[in-house]
Every structure is written in C-alpha cells, then in structure tokens.
Amino acid sequence: MAGNKETDAHSGMETTGHEWDGIKELDTPLPRWWLWIFYASIAFAVVYWILMPSWPGITGYAPGILHKSDRAQVVTDLAALKAQRSAQASRLATADLATIEKDPQLQAYALAVGQSIFGDNCATCHGTGGTGAKGYPNLRDDVWLWGGSLEDIQRTITHGVRSTDPEARTSQMPAFGRDQILQPGQIDNLTEYVVSLSHRPANTAMAAAAAPVFQANCASCHGPQGLGNQQFGAPNLTDADWLYGSDRASIKDQIWNGHGGVMPNWGKRFDANTIKALTVYIHANAGGK
C-alpha cells in the first residue's frame, strides 16, 4: 500500500485506497469495544485451557483442573437413567407377565425396553420388523413352533433352541434323504403328500402312496393329521405358514436334509427383567395369543 493516505473531501475521512468505478471505500475504524471483545475471547480461551481437557501430549493429554470427561459423563448419565427407571424396573421385576400386559403403564415401559433389546439383539435373524426369513421364524404372525403363550415365549428366549443350555428346547428332524432313511422315490411321494396336507392341488396317486410312509416316519412328531406338536417344535403342516418355504423344492429339501435352526440361550446374557420386557414385546406384536 502506498504510504500517503488519501482523504475523502466530503466526509473528511481517510480512504482505503481501493477504487471501484470511481467509488472509494472509507477506512472507517472499528469501534474500540470490538477490540475488547477480541481480548475477552482470548482470555476465555486461556481459562478454558486451564479448566478443560485441552493440550495433547505424546501418551495422553492435559486433563484440565475440572477433569471433565465425556466417557465418565456417559457412565454417570447411564447410572442416573437407571435410577430414574428403577421404580418401573422394580415393578416389572415383581409383577408376573400377565399382570404386566394388563397394566397400560407397565406394558408401555416393557414395550419400550423390549423394542430396544429386540432391535439390538434379535433383529439380526428375525428382522427389524420381526417377520423373520427362510429358516428364521416370523414372530409377528400367530404361528408358534414352541408355543405362543407368554410363558412359552419367555422359556424359549431364556434357554434358546438347540443351544448349549441344558434346558434348551431341542428336537431334531431326521435327514431322511441324506442319511438314507427313505428312498428318493418315497421322498418325492412324501412331498406330494405334504403339499396335499395344506389343501393345495397335488398328485393324488403319489400322495396316496406316501400316506403309510408319513404315518410310520412323520406322524410321531407332526401328528397323524400333520397338525404338528409344539412340545417338539414340530410345525403344523396344514396351515399357510412354512418356515423353510412352501414350494415343492423347499419341502423336499427339508425332508431330505432335516434343517433345524439354532437360537441362543439369552438367559446367559440378559437379566430376568430384560427377558420379561422382551417377552411382552414379542407377545404383543404377535397379537397377544
């Protein structure tokens, strides 16, 4: 910038020397208080350095004399949250499942807890909506392999299915084809028979041929009419619900290989209260049988 400052004749003020189409900018000084605010900000920063975690070091950082820590804050907040919920939580602990479901306040609390637990743990297999997938049961409908009452659901969650828990719900459908228990032709006939059980058009001759095979091999678990048995987790073969698929190929595959899913015993991870809440949540979403 040039040393000699130019003065505007009209206002008597210095100009910045910048010119745009003949218009010059006045060099209006900032008010002094603006400078004070700038100094105050610097002073604030210094105080902040002293009070709060600030300077990084090689292995750590200057903690500041207030020893503020977001991590410690989270622990405190979680403890406070738990304390805040303790009244509801203790009511949940003492009430039985049917009472929880009938008390609107307690039910709302259980549903909220259940939803969050379900999303974090169960949704992986059963889906966020709880509708399951092939091999993973739909928890929203009214079909239950191991029973849909509150107590049944609670037991299934606590001990799991085919899990390591000694009280786990366990059953094993034989792999009729893989283990060569039945001949491939018999399995083809059996497939037609199972299709006919669910009131769908099937090859009557093949189905009729498979009827004695079904009674001999399948009826012990699925029942003579194929209505299933929740004691063994044996599905009802006459309804519209198919865990491993409803088409002929899927049915045949299931008879051949005898798939059986595994569900963890959540009792080892959750406390009793959490399982209660989860039970109420699943029961309510399935329509509350």
Binding site: G127, T128, G129, R140, D142, N236, D239, G287
Partner: peptide, 18 residues
C-alpha cells in the same frame, strides 16, 4: 400404519395390519 412389517400373514392365510 406399521411400516415394518407392512402386513402379516396368519396361519389361515388371513392378513393382519398393525
């Protein structure tokens, strides 16, 4: 209306919405 699941098919083929 429930968005997930949009509907549920029950054992008798009837449909339930939440």
């Amino acid at each position: 209306r429930d968005r997930n699941p949009t509907f549920v098919r029950l054992h008798d083929g009837s449909i339930r919405d939440g």
